Amino acid sequence: MRKLIAALLIVAATAFAAPLAHAVQPDEVMADPAKEARARELSRELRCMVCQNQSIDDSDATLAKDLRLLVRERIAAGDSNRQVIDYLVERYGEFVLLKPRFELHTLLLWLVPPLVLVGGGLGLWLHIRRRGRDTARVGEAPKPLSADEQARLDKLLTEGADRT
């Protein structure tokens, strides 16, 4: 029983620790710690084209490794962070960025979530306001029937009583 519990704890610890581990291999690490820090920072901003919503820093895919090496090559060649990002966007498109740039062609992407949030809040506010008005009407006394309505009601009631 103790062995089973120990095995389950090891499996659970591995499952929780696995997402925290980075995919960068020791042979990829640059000798200069400052350049390596830049490479890691850039790798966290770039999307793995295979894994979609995972950065190349976290991905074990072969393409992610190639991109990590390409980032390190560009940094070693003396490129700035902006130049490295621009090079990768030119080569692979905007999709390579986990957080797209705020430009005219990405305006819809950036503006739709806040507009949906504001629209939803406005809709909820209107619904609550309308519901409050309807609730206020429930407490009011009904209007009395007009003479014509009362006569028609009496006629319907007498006809219904005659049928039974």
Score class of each variant (00 low, 15 high):
residue 5 I to T: 09
residue 5 I to S: 10
residue 5 I to Y: 09
residue 9 L to T: 01
residue 9 L to K: 08
residue 10 I to Y: 04
residue 11 V to D: 02
residue 11 V to H: 00
residue 12 A to Q: 00
residue 13 A to V: 14
residue 19 P to Q: 06
residue 21 A to T: 12
residue 23 A to Y: 04
residue 25 Q to S: 09
residue 27 D to C: 00
residue 28 E to I: 08
residue 29 V to P: 00
residue 30 M to C: 06
residue 30 M to Y: 05
residue 31 A to V: 08
residue 32 D to H: 07
residue 34 A to M: 10
residue 35 K to Q: 14
residue 35 K to P: 00
residue 37 A to S: 13
residue 38 R to E: 11
residue 38 R to L: 10
residue 38 R to V: 05
residue 39 A to D: 05
residue 44 R to T: 14
residue 45 E to G: 10
residue 45 E to D: 14
residue 46 L to V: 15
residue 47 R to Q: 11
residue 48 C to A: 15
residue 50 V to D: 13
residue 51 C to V: 01
residue 52 Q to F: 10
residue 52 Q to V: 14
residue 52 Q to T: 13
residue 53 N to S: 10
residue 57 D to C: 03
residue 58 D to W: 07
residue 61 A to K: 13
residue 61 A to L: 05
residue 62 T to A: 09
residue 63 L to V: 13
residue 66 D to L: 11
residue 67 L to F: 02
residue 67 L to D: 01
residue 68 R to P: 12
residue 71 V to C: 02
residue 73 E to N: 13
residue 73 E to R: 14
residue 74 R to I: 01
residue 78 G to N: 04
residue 78 G to A: 08
residue 81 N to V: 04
residue 81 N to E: 15
residue 86 D to F: 02
residue 89 V to R: 02
residue 90 E to A: 11
residue 92 Y to S: 03
residue 93 G to N: 05
residue 95 F to Q: 11
residue 95 F to L: 09
residue 96 V to T: 10
residue 96 V to H: 01
residue 96 V to C: 04
residue 98 L to C: 03
residue 103 E to N: 05
residue 104 L to T: 09
residue 105 H to V: 03
residue 106 T to Q: 15
residue 106 T to P: 10
residue 107 L to D: 01
residue 108 L to M: 06
residue 114 P to C: 01
residue 116 V to L: 14
residue 117 L to V: 13
residue 120 G to H: 02
residue 124 L to Y: 11
residue 125 W to R: 11
residue 128 I to K: 13
residue 128 I to M: 11
residue 130 R to N: 11
residue 131 R to C: 05
residue 131 R to V: 01
residue 131 R to S: 12
residue 133 R to M: 03
residue 134 D to K: 14
residue 135 T to S: 03
residue 140 E to C: 08
residue 143 K to Q: 11
residue 143 K to R: 13
residue 143 K to C: 02
residue 144 P to C: 07
residue 146 S to V: 08
residue 147 A to W: 06
residue 148 D to V: 01
residue 152 R to F: 10
residue 153 L to Q: 15
residue 153 L to R: 15
residue 153 L to P: 12
residue 158 T to W: 07
residue 159 E to H: 04
residue 159 E to F: 04
residue 162 D to S: 13
residue 163 R to K: 15
